[in-house]
Amino acid sequence: MSILEIKGVSKRFGGLKALDDVNISVAENAVHAIIGPNGAGKSTLLNCLVGKLIPDTGSVTFQGQSLLGIKPHQINQMGVSRVFQTPEIFGDLSVWENVLIPLFARRDGAFRMHAFETIANEADICDKAEQMLIDVNMQDKMHMHAASLSRGDKRRLEMAMCLSQEPKLLLLDEPTAGMARADTNNTIDLLKEIQASRNITMAIIEHDMHVVFSLAERVTVMAQGTPLVEDTPDNIKGHPKVQEAYLGGH
């Protein structure tokens, strides 16, 4: 059963056709990778999923509900979390506060005027935040300034922030971009752990074939704004169209 349905999505920027009749179906609890060379339309597609862009035509539905015209915070409240290419965290806040914020957002919704409550009295939220930091092995860094973390730790923290909301769908935009091989492998391990323990559906946009073939169960290859082929990683590796459009260049 699919959790995310993208049907006939097209998007133009002036004369440039960034997406052209994209149809992708992401199955529940699966890891679905979307790959393609630069300019294939991967990031535009992702932005259409999270409310940053509205497609010119087509539909995007999450659990049967349309995501078109809905603001990013509302899409998140529906159960969709996003990991950015460059980790987006609250750099001025501590690691601890970074994890508290999504937990409050999940419990209290998009806005709550809790100006006279104290964090210490929120035992439930504090326990969850602590457990989340233990899960991503960052408990010893909880009082650190988030901006002072290494890139790998920032990525871990961002994952922790997304996971603490117990999303149904996790969108990852090149989660290993710019990482050293060791950090990339750590991130792959972390994602595998998450997938195994939490049964979260993941849609990954990725350049690195090592990451894609380590994680994905289904792969969609895009080129020039349109999906070329969708299959299992093993079949994708040897597919002549893919060789020609993408892998052939590597």
């Binding site: 609250f90 914020i101 999504p102 909301q165």
Partner: peptide
């Protein structure tokens, strides 16, 4: 904390459901 989050990173805030 939410107000400090506004100052720190509004994009992350919006994608965190706030």
């Amino acid at each position: 904390i939410m107000l400090r989050a506004v100052k720190s990173n509004q994009q992350r805030m919006n994608y965190t459901g706030l």
